[in-house]
């Protein structure tokens, strides 16, 4: 897994999902960012989610895949 979620901080704004170039991310019914079904291996570690997340709730663990 290349992404780390700090769920307690996530407010479900959807910025990460919208700008993810590989559509890896989604916002769940519980209003939290998560990896979309079937996209577990699609993250390219571009870091756009980490960079823009206003809540410091998603981080890319590079090379952890």
């Amino acid at each position: 897994m290349a992404l780390k979620f700090v769920t307690a901080r996530c407010k479900g704004c959807g910025i990460c999902a919208y700008f993810c170039p590989k559509k890896v991310l989604t916002v769940t019914e519980l209003n939290k960012a998560a990896i979309a079904e079937g996209k577990e291996n699609d993250c390219i570690e571009c870091g756009q989610c980490e960079m823009r997340c206003p809540d410091y709730a998603i981080f890319v663990e590079r090379g952890a895949k």
């Binding site: 307690a8 407010k11 997340c53 809540d55 410091y56």
Partner: peptide, 12 residues
């Protein structure tokens, strides 16, 4: 943290 700003607020 979490900070007090609303969901999607760019301040963070």
């Amino acid at each position: 943290l979490p900070h007090l700003w609303c969901p999607g607020c760019g301040n963070g």
